[in-house]
Nucleic acid binder design. Structure first.
Length: 638
RNA sequence: GCCAUCGUAGCUCAGUGGUAGAGCACUUCCUUGGUAAGGAAGAGGUCGCCGGUUCGAUCCCGGCCGAUGGCUCCA
């Protein structure tokens, strides 16, 4: 039978019998089987190189560049890692070891002899020795009894549990070297291409992700076909660490965290300048887009949260207090407050859509172990809004919202975006008719706006479908920011109504939406995206004035006054240091514009500008013109 | 909350069973300087908190607090 192979844009063909393994076919036509070519797909599913070709005709051959190649590569690496670990920890019990987005892990019960980071080096060395032999991955079909008795001998309850849940006629072991593991595959033909490995970290992980189960040790690692690729990856990790917003927050004196309030950020003066610049911009933009601003109380009576359903479903994450012997709760969300304003008087259909936004400060009790800088905090300010509209208005509202979201992300240079539409889950409230109307409105709006999006079937909230927005930063990391959620539940729970043209009351649809998500988290993302080099319009200090010596303080103050009058954020450095030192400090502060003033400038009423963004200098710019230039350059995007 | 690792000066970190150090920052003095660190002196720590072992603990042990990496990527 004739087989067709696709590799690197070329097509090859060869005769092969069904029993012949795929790698033999490759070798016959002179392709780099098992070195550059790691695996293959046929009809969209992975076909191992060592597997007989069977009656498949067409094969797409895949290397390191493909997700499937990496998947197989890392899956096999997990086996080698387990083998290497077992050589030092013979009593360790394996559970599962899958490939992940960046590398792979293995969850292992180390019993009484725990692994520590000091063991990493010798395990890595052992790993490379094993991989270099190389080890061939051999698939073996075994009976359920065989499989069970193998792991009963080794007293491994995890594998036994897994086997018991498997169909009896579809259990496979993979052998590689002296190592055997229960595994469905697929794997590399052999370990030869695995030439570099790094054990990254240890973490606790519950067996099957359930906190009632025993906790295993998860060993994270990553492997590569070239040492240079590992180096590159380690550089990426270093760069990510350099951009860590927690470090930048400290270095740039923006915010801090303290034992006195774990998970509650303290905003310093420069951080507040950034936060308010961001909020001012957002506020102006929303007011221009047909929104009205509201503010609702932080503490509200517990009865309200019982009515909204939060008390029942979200109590674990809420803070409670007592006022005049009555139970109250600190708001974890802004929506109930918004509905109170909605129903504060009778509403007409003529008012809809009613768009109310609130920069709402919410408090949520997050588990202590999940707190992470500004990314996961216990108090944050959402750029929240609630749109009350009729079912017919959903589509135009979503269309307008998509445009708004687009403009906002574009303003920060988040040009790579992913959009997800989540549809009706199994458990839902509201009528099927309303759901399908809403889902098709969301989809129609997305299509009309020309955005590419993915559908996550059944992933919507029980109270309505939603759209989620994910951006990629300059290091290509993914961040979920905005969300648009339709809500059929809350308007009913709170008895919201509007009077229609026929004089009869109807229930509005509520759209919850946040674009940045929370200002705190967004600032964290923005700091990592820009490595702290914020755009001029957001910089806490836009211009730093550096007098060459004490003699020019008076002129520096004059310059500062001009900046202040123009509404530009500025600072002057009056430390007793030489100019070089002041420049260095200002550069490390990541100030976009440095204005040097000395004898020449004072005399001629000019400034000498050092621009961080263009790495250029221009001397003798008249003060008035320099101020105008900054004003113009610091205009926020639309 | 659970697991692992960590917690020494404002920051970054070194160090030891016999009550502690560096660089930067800070204060003072000298210096009045032209595009990424001028010089000198000084001040600053109950070595996260509580308890235990010890003649003696920052160091060893336990608990607590906080931080970091993880904890629905399922053979």
């Amino acid at each position: 039978m004739q087989r067709i192979l696709h590799w690197a844009g070329q097509t090859f063909s060869s005769e092969a019998s069904p029993e012949e393994p795929l790698y033999k076919v490759l070798e016959r036509v002179g392709l780099p089987a098992g070195t550059e070519i790691l695996t293959a797909t046929t009809n969209g599913s992975i076909h191992e190189l060592q597997a007989p070709v069977g009656d498949h005709v067409e094969f797409q051959l895949l290397g390191w560049d493909s997700p499937e190649g990496k998947y197989v590569f890392w899956h096999s690496s997990a086996h080698i890692l387990a083998e290497a670990i077992l050589s030092f920890f013979p009593k360790a019990k394996l559970s599962i070891g899958p490939p992940i987005e960046n590398g792979f892990y293995y969850d292992i019960d180390f019993g009484d002899t725990p692994i520590s980071p000091e063991d990493f080096e010798r395990i890595e060395q052992k790993f490379l020795e094993l991989a270099a032999q190389p080890e061939y991955f051999v698939r073996k079909k075994v009976s359920k009894e065989e499989a069970l008795s193998y792991y009963q001998q080794r007293e491994n309850p995890y594998k036994i549990e897994l086997i018991q849940e498997l169909p009896p006629d579809d259990i496979t072991f993979y052998e590689s070297g002296n190592f055997v593991d229960l595994c469905k595959g697929p794997h590399l033909w052999h370990s030869g291409p695995i030439r570099a490995v790094k054990i990254l970290s240890l973490a606790g992980a519950y067996w099957r992700g359930d906190s009632r189960n025993p906790q295993l040790t998860r060993v994270y690692a990553i492997s590569f076909p070239e040492k240079a690729l590992l180096e590159e990856y380690l550089h990426f990790l270093e760069e990510a660490a350099r951009r860590d917003h927690r470090n930048l927050g400290k270095q740039l004196d923006l915010f801090s965290f303290h034992e006195e309030g774990p998970g509650f950020p303290f905003w310093h003066p420069k951080g507040m300048r950034l936060l308010t610049a961001l909020q001012d911009w957002m506020r102006a933009k929303l007011l221009r887009s047909g929104y009205e601003e509201i503010r609702t109380p932080i503490i509200l009576t517990q009865r309200l949260w019982e009515q909204s359903g939060h008390y029942e479903n979200y109590r674990e994450n809420m803070y409670f207090t007592t006022i005049d012997e009555e139970p109250y709760a600190v708001k974890p969300m802004n929506c109930p407050g918004s509905t109170i304003i909605y129903r504060s008087r009778l509403r007409s259909y003529r008012e809809l859509p009613l768009r109310l936004f609130e920069f709402g400060l919410v408090h949520r009790h997050e588990l202590s172990g999940v707190l992470t800088g500004l990314f996961r905090v216990r108090a944050f300010t959402q750029d929240d809004a609630h749109i009350y509209c009729t079912p017919e208005q959903i589509e135009p509202e979503i269309t307008a919202l998509l445009q708004l979201v687009n403009e906002v992300y574009e303003a920060f240079g988040f040009s790579q975006r992913e959009i997800y539409l989540s549809t009706r889950p199994e458990k839902y409230i509201g009528s099927l008719e309303l759901w399908s109307q809403a889902e098709s409105a969301l989809e129609a709006a997305l299509r009309k706006s020309g955005f590419t999006f993915q559908i996550n079937p059944g992933e919507g909230a029980f109270y309505g479908p939603k759209i989620d927005f994910v951006v990629r930063d300059s290091l290509r990391r993914r961040w979920q920011l905005g969300t648009i959620q339709l809500d059929f539940s809350m308007p009913r729970r709170f008895g919201l109504e509007y009077i229609g043209p026929d004089g009869q009351p109807s229930t509005p649809v509520m759209i919850h939406r946040a674009i940045l998500g929370s200002f705190e988290r967004f600032i964290g993302v923005l700091l990592e995206h820009t490595a702290g080099e914020l755009p001029l319009w957001l910089s806490p200090i836009q211009v730093k004035v550096l007098p060459v010596s004490e003699k020019f303080y008076a002129y520096a103050d004059e310059v500062g006054k001009a900046l202040a009058q123009a509404g530009i954020r500025w600072a002057v450095d009056k430390t007793d240091e030489k100019l070089g030192k002041k420049i260095r400090e200002a550069e490390q502060e990541k100030v976009p514009l440095i204005w040097v003033v000395g004898a020449k400038e004072a005399e001629s009423g000019t400034v000498s500008i050092r621009d961080r963004r263009t790495r250029t200098q221009s001397e003798g710019v008249p003060l008035a013109q320099a101020v105008q230039d900054v004003l113009q350059a610091s205009q926020p995007p639309i």
